[in-house]
Design a protein around this nucleic acid. Structure first.
Lengths: 180, 180
DNA sequence: TATAATTCGTACCAACAGGTATGCATAAAG
DNA sequence: CTTTATGCATACCTGTTGGTACGAATTATA
């Protein structure tokens, strides 16, 4: 699914790669849609929410907390990951206009990301570590858009370098909101 | 193709919607792939390159030239466009890892965009209208990533408001490079 | 005008793709 | 120990899909 998309996912290939049969497959899943939903619910969503939820447990400058998460993406994600790109971004592009079940799930994930980032910025503002006139929600959305777009660029060029460069630029942007 | 993606594009639907027959279709195109390539070459690429190429003929502050292009997206694109998102971004996500022919074409378009934006910034630096320490290439990539991501966000939420907010944020970011 | 090339309509096809029917072990329940 | 529910393997089915074969107008060329 990561490589071919949900629509390109072939039931036969799934059962072959898993070494199971169609009997087992359809015993646990009513069909392709439920399989797709399960992949989002049980893998993509928990992974994303855990990754960005870590911001809530970060001690230190909240802006540096976000920066640390961005850098974590650079170190944790293997080179191959950037060839196929972010599962989240891929599914958004493919399924948002086609299947409301997918869309609602993906929107939830994005909202979780936004709340985590926005919360960090707001905590920084309360402790006067972040400029008071910064709009936390707008910045969070901006960072998320940038992240999704950085994955797109790296995928188009088939070169993670473009992701890294965008991240560096974003880090500079974020640090501009520090102090007063 | 805009809605269902290249893989989801159905030859039968194409000929029906065009009111032609398969005979005509396969007379002009060797198959689905050539049709896809033609759509990129004859529609998506020219449209994008023309839109961003307008920066070269912009008189006035180059940063405001870029801002004007971003605002043009907000006014020229209809609400429905944001539901299906940017054809460019969609194709990148779907086809970059699957078909080198598509990927190379899409990369060319992105390079054209980058050169246009980067060129505007560099012209601004020569005339001291843009800070000399700004890295034109990095900024151009950053803007492009943001743009692609802004389309993704709007698509995921099925609400163009998210695109508009990202654009506003980006405009503020860009104007930060003005003056010395 | 004879010939050749272009244009495109109709019928058809083989591969594929998601899904079903069914049966049979094994495990749980009474 | 019987009965029932669960887990899963095999074979098959039906609609779809990109593509082809072929012929017939129409247009260009010699």
């Amino acid at each position: 699914m990561h490589l071919h998309g949900y629509q390109g996912l072939r039931a036969d290939l799934v059962v072959n790669e898993l070494g199971i049969t169609k009997g087992a497959y359809y015993h646990y899943f009513s069909g392709k849609q439920e399989l797709g939903y399960s992949i989002v619910d049980e893998f993509i969503a928990p992974e994303q929410l855990q990754f960005w939820g870590a911001l809530n447990g970060y001690f230190g400058h909240p802006i540096e907390g976000i920066v640390e998460r961005l850098k974590a993406l650079r170190t944790e994600l293997k080179n191959d990951y950037f060839m196929t790109g972010s599962e989240l971004n891929n599914l958004i592009q493919e399924m948002s206009p086609l299947d409301e079940g997918f869309r609602a799930r993906l929107q939830r994930i994005l909202e979780g990301m936004r709340l985590a980032i926005q919360g960090a910025i707001e905590r920084g503002q309360k402790s006067r570590l972040v400029k008071a006139d910064a709009n936390a929600e707008e910045i969070a959305l901006f960072v998320m858009a940038n992240l999704l777009g950085a994955f797109s660029l790296a995928k188009a060029f088939q070169d993670r370098k473009f992701f890294d460069r965008c991240i560096e630029q974003m880090i500079g942007y974020l640090r501009g909101f520090k102090g007063q």
